[in-house]
Design a protein around this nucleic acid. Sequence first.
DNA 1: AATTAAATGTAACATTTGTTACATTTAAAA
DNA 2: TTTTAAATGTAACAAATGTTACATTTAATT
Lengths: 223, 223
Amino acid sequence: MFQNLVNSPLFKGLSAEEVDGLFLPLKYQVKHFRSGEMLAQAGEEVDKAMLLLEGRLQGEMVDFAGNSLKIEEMDPPQMVAAAFLFGPASTFPVFLSAKSDGKILILPKKEFTTMLCLEPRVMVNYLNIVSGKAQFLTGKITFLSLKTIREKVAYYLMQRMRNGENGVVSMDVTQTSLADLFGVTRPSLTRTILDMEKQGILAWSRDSVTILSYNTLNEILGR
Amino acid sequence: MFQNLVNSPLFKGLSAEEVDGLFLPLKYQVKHFRSGEMLAQAGEEVDKAMLLLEGRLQGEMVDFAGNSLKIEEMDPPQMVAAAFLFGPASTFPVFLSAKSDGKILILPKKEFTTMLCLEPRVMVNYLNIVSGKAQFLTGKITFLSLKTIREKVAYYLMQRMRNGENGVVSMDVTQTSLADLFGVTRPSLTRTILDMEKQGILAWSRDSVTILSYNTLNEILGR
DNA sequence: AATTAAATGTAACATTTGTTACATTTAAAA
DNA sequence: TTTTAAATGTAACAAATGTTACATTTAATT
């Protein structure tokens, strides 16, 4: 019935038959949407679980200054605003709009709760999703609390290292979009990068960055 | 047995007997701690549910620059690091230390999961807690993404207004600690406040702030 | 009332970042 | 290949914030 959903994190570990069986006693509806359509306003109450079946959505947080700080895009199959169905302020934190045509499955909160009780595996999956969101946001906060552009660059590169790639980080984004991600202006980012190059900390080319002084990067981040 | 726990958000709606009954089939342990003791390092794995029974804890996030950005203090009865028991990176996000002597109840993750399945009300409570954390963090991010000190002051005062208090916000914190909360230096905050006073936007006294131009505050926040 | 500590006001200067504008390079499209 | 658009380099200047140091006020303590 909902083959898509089987691949969703929410139904991880369940077979297609088990998922179908799970929905049998539940009341739900499927809604189609069109590209560009606004699906939810920030502040609107969340009283239904929304499972994206097809199409692409975009949640963007708009601060008071009107700058849109992109938080995430969503591909199916995935639950929408998973961390905002429960909790004291169950309202949308972002403006949710469609980037393409598609459809979502809508399940009233009560039905969703019933489903969690019926199937412990789904409950654990849901807990993993919501907890994951909280952890993602914690990471975002860590990043946002870095004050200088130097620190942001250092942190970003450290994150991207991981694998014993011998000090080379492959770059799949432009400085322009990186500046956007960092919430700084592009000339300022470029200036900082060039400074760091002049100081022999790194070498920045179009498609990769070579870290020349690991130590200095660590010093920038306070060891 | 654990009278404290009955008043915990996790067991909201349950009687003392029900809580005791819930723990009967579970394996748990109670650990005592002393003031100043470090209970968990950031990065350490979370594989046990920790319920604070007595004493006061403090979770502080230390960024790379060594600045401690206080996130929250905890009073009993409450679950510790609730949003980090599940999820992909189940590691402590903060340094957890004791601000007084006390004790915590420790429940292995498996036992905790069993408990959630046994009692749907606890499951919903837990979902409310974890979702609430995610929502709290979202709010934190909104604040951190404000760029200027002016914006932070404006946002802070708007948050504190609410009740039809006729433009008067009572201040229970000093400028010094407010600067700390904002992540800026104290002289800079003072300068900004004085500027705003000179511009007739507000009047800041020790124990209260009077908002003189609501409109200007909104303009600062981009309407 | 006198003393002390904390909070707040103030100022000069350094540092960082934003703003704007334009040049140059690189990649993609015609 | 030529053309075009995007990305990047550069620079002068403005604005915001940090740094440091000290004065002044306020509240708490003795």
